[in-house]
Each structure stands twice: as structure tokens, then as C-alpha cells.
Amino acid sequence: MSGPPQPACLWGNLTSFAADMRKMINEREFSDVQFIVGKERKVVHAHRCILAYRCEAFSTMFAQQPLSCDAKEVDIPFVLSDVQPDVFLAVIEFLYTNCVMLSNKMALDVLTSAVEYGLDDLQKLCVDYISNTLTVESACEALQAAVTYRQTDMKDKCLAFIQSHTKSIVKTQGFHELSDPALLVILQSDLLTIDEPDLINFVREWAHVNSVVLDKTVPEIAKEVVHELRLFLLTPDELTILEAENKKDNLIPMDRIAEVWKFHALRKPSGIAVHLLRRRKGTRPRDHHKYLSQISIKATK
């Protein structure tokens, strides 16, 4: 004889459940906690038990300020001045319904809040949305977020998009605002669709912008990233132009430029990382590249 039927977990209509829970979002009736959000000081009403059991960060926050048992006392609202109201409401929506409405305008900020509150599932939803809706204007900002929050898949998708649209993306504000580590991710790629002299010029622009913003010299700003510029791809004439530009801001250390001049004289670069000799996808062919190709092949054997 078979035993009694095993218990089973049966699901009702999840869409209907989420819709009912959504009605509670920022609903004053029956709420027991308030947040003052953003510079606009928008009041957001919520329910402690839902937030606390769905998010450890809120549980900790509420533990530091227990709910008053005295009806005559007014609970002090939590002030969250560093988050936009629509972003905070998106986080609340996820905690109440396990789904979220995102847009290009706010997705990166919601990702930041998801990281701050330790909401892994919300992070994944944001990463998927951002990765699948990249634009020329948003790609660098998304890459910066991916590097900052160590989102490898998102970083790879951003880089692939940047590789395909390099000429447009290097002109954006987002490119100028990249951190050193994020810019290095781009410069280490063989698949950028841009010629090296043009790329060097845009890196110079990046360095000048950040020099003003951070109040540091151009060489200080660029000391890490310049080592990924593939100067060996330049012809002697292009190197002469670069050297003249470099006298104005010292973007590139003189010993790096001297090293390239030595190669053009001897055709034998020594002690150079092999990837710096490789043409990128968008590199325009030059006569001396045949020597670089031969050196690269020998180095990989």
C-alpha cells in the first residue's frame, strides 16, 4: 500500500497577488513608517513588517528606532536625502511585489540602491535591463557601474557595445567621466573600432577634463591609462605630430615615445607587452605593421 499523499505547495495567481500588494505602496492607511526622501523631501509611507522581512538593511534600520507603543507619540520619519523618490519607490515596489518597473533614466540609480540595500535579485533585474537597453549615451556610465559593483556579465556586454560604437562613444560625456579602472577596460580591448591616433586624442581630452575636475595635472590623471595606448601602431610622421602635442601637456612619458622611435630605427622592440603591438579592429593599416605582426607571432610561439 502506498503511504498518504505528500504535502504540496500550490501557488495561486501571482499576478493578482502582486497587483494587490502594489496597492499598498505609499498608501498612508495602515502604514506604520514614513520616509522623507530626496532633496524634494517627498513623504513615502510604508509598512515595517514587509520591509524588515524582505530586506535586512531595513530590519537593521528599524531595530535602531523601534515602533512606538504609545499612541500619543509620533514616530520620527527616516530621512533619506541621498536617493531620488522615484528610485526609492522602485525599491519599495520590488520589496512589495518582487517585480519592478525600470527606465533608462533611473535603472542605474536603482542598481546603486539595490547594492546599498543588499538586494541581490533586484541587482540582477537591473543588470539585465541595463545590459539589454544600452545606448551610445548610456554605455560608459553603465560600464562604470559594472566596474564599480563588480558585475562581470554587465561589464562584458557594455564593452561589446562600446567596441561596436567606439567612434561615437568616445565623444560622449560618459566617456569623459570614466574612472581610471573603467577606461582601462576599454583601452585593453583589441576590438575597438577606432584608429589609434584618434583614440589617443580622445584619451587626451578625457585627461584634460579630469585634470580640471580633480585639480590634478594631466600626467597625474593619465599615468595609468597611457600605458595602454598602442603607440607602436603610429607611423613616424604621426609620432612626430604626437610628440609636438605632448610638449603642451606631457600626457605621455617621454621614455615611452623614445621607445617607439627606437623601434622605427631598429624594428626590434624589446621588453614590450605583446598586446601593445597588435592592431585593434579599427586600426588603419600602415606599412610598418607587417613588422609588428611578425614580432607578435614570434612572441606567441
Score class of each variant (00 low, 15 high):
Glu205His: 13
Gly271Arg: 12
Leu184Asn: 13
Asp86Pro: 03
Asp121Ile: 07
Glu141Phe: 15
Val185Tyr: 01
Pro66Phe: 01
Leu125Arg: 08
Pro236Glu: 06
Phe88Met: 06
Glu243Gln: 14
Ala8Cys: 11
Tyr129Asn: 05
Ile169Thr: 02
Thr112Asp: 10
Leu266Phe: 11
Pro253Ser: 06
Asp121Phe: 02
Ser31Asn: 11
Tyr129Trp: 03
Leu108Glu: 13
Asp128Lys: 13
Glu205Asp: 10
Asp120Lys: 11
Val100Asn: 05
Ala71Ser: 08
Leu214Arg: 15
Gly12Cys: 01
Ile295Leu: 03
Asp109Ile: 01
Asn201Ala: 12
Ser179Gln: 12
Asn98Leu: 06
Met1Cys: 13
Asn98Asp: 08
Val185Lys: 09
Ile130Asp: 04
Gln144Trp: 04
Leu266Asn: 13
Ile92Trp: 02
Gln6Glu: 13
Leu234Gly: 05
Leu183Ser: 01
Val226Ser: 04
Leu95Pro: 04
Ile130Asn: 05
Tyr149Thr: 03
Phe30Arg: 05
Thr300Tyr: 07
Gln144Gly: 00
Leu95Trp: 02
Asp180Gln: 15
Glu228Asn: 15
Cys69Val: 14
Cys69Thr: 15
Asp237Ser: 12
Ala182Ser: 10
Phe175Asn: 00
Cys99Val: 15
Asn250Ile: 07
Asn13Ala: 02
Gln64Lys: 12
Thr283Asp: 04
Thr135Gly: 00
Lys216Pro: 01
Leu80Arg: 04
Asn13Thr: 06
Asp237Met: 03
Lys124Ile: 08
Ile221Cys: 08
Asp120Ile: 12
Val260Ile: 07
Leu234Met: 07
Leu184Gln: 15
Lys216Met: 11
Cys9Trp: 10
Leu14Ile: 09
Ile50Gly: 06
Ser81Thr: 14
Ile257Lys: 03
Leu239Thr: 01
Ile297Tyr: 05
Lys248Thr: 08
Ser131Asp: 00
Leu102Val: 06
Ser59Glu: 06
Ala142Pro: 00
Leu80Cys: 04
Leu234Lys: 07
Leu229Thr: 06
Ser81His: 12
Phe78Ala: 07
Trp261His: 05
Lys157Cys: 15
Asp109Leu: 12
His208Ala: 14
Tyr291Met: 08
Ser2Ala: 14
Lys167Gly: 06
Lys171Gln: 04
Arg267Met: 10
Arg54Ser: 08
Glu27Val: 11
Phe78Arg: 09
Thr172Glu: 06
Asp180Lys: 14
Glu177Trp: 08
Asp198Cys: 10
Tyr129Met: 03
Asn98Met: 08
Phe161Tyr: 08
Glu245Asp: 10
Ser164Leu: 09
Gly174Val: 03
Met101Cys: 12
Lys301Met: 14
Glu259His: 10
Val274Glu: 01
Glu196Met: 05
Arg284Lys: 14
Val213Pro: 01
Asn201Ile: 15
Glu56Cys: 06
